[in-house]
Design a protein around this nucleic acid. Structure first.
Length: 182
DNA sequence: CTCGGGATGCGT
DNA sequence: CGCATCCCGAGG
């Protein structure tokens, strides 16, 4: 499978989000390679997007989001789970795509439906914060993707984002059994 | 320093 | 609906 180049991420976030569907997230750790197919994502469109962490400005936690494309923005949520994003667009745009669900492909025994669970299953935590996704041990690759239909829905868990909460910035593969619940 | 809350998930 | 569990970010 072919690793996605930097220029894949250096594009409009809506495009990157939808094109990430069907791609493969690969993480090699302690000699084990884990692979999951990306089946559900959410787009976060920068500081003006009230649901995006970057809407609160550049802080130590969110600085990766403000950095160059093709890096992992990983954060701890509710003290328990990690969530993984892919930084998109040019540095300073502070946009990203949240990976919400994977379809297990290789070495994934645990559940992968939901952003917290998939990080746990893939062995992703704060050590991967800021990691370059063009590295050899943690990256996204294109495979042979069968054609599929993309469903567009509002994002999960962001009712506070006012008008942004309604926008259909969550994308997933139609009829895929590994979409997160809720 | 304290303190409130969160892009979650699971059990009741 | 409540709770686990902890870092961040704002304010004193």
């Amino acid at each position: 499978m072919k690793k996605l180049p930097r220029r894949f991420y250096d594009r409009d976030t809506l495009t990157v989000a939808q094109e990430l569907l069907g791609k493969y997230l690969i993480h090699k750790q302690a000699g084990i390679q884990r692979i999951g197919k990306i089946v559900e994502v959410e787009a976060y469109l920068g500081p003006h997007d009230l649901a995006a962490h970057s809407a609160k400005g550049l802080t130590p936690r969110t600085q990766v989001m403000f950095g160059p494309p093709g890096h992992a923005y990983v954060y701890l949520i509710y003290g328990i789970y990690y969530c993984m994003n892919v930084v998109t667009e040019k540095a300073g745009r502070a946009s990203a795509v949240l990976i919400r669900a994977l379809e297990p492909i290789k070495n994934l025994e645990a559940r992968t439906q939901g952003p917290g669970l998939l990080c746990k299953a893939m062995g992703i935590d704060k050590k991967q914060q800021g990691h370059d996704l063009l590295s050899s041990d943690f990256y996204v690759a294109a495979g042979e993707e069968a054609p599929f239909q993309i469903i567009k829905r509002p994002r999960i868990g962001v009712p506070y984002a006012k008008q942004w909460a309604k926008r259909k910035l969550r994308f997933y593969i139609k009829d895929n059994p590994f979409i997160s619940k809720r």
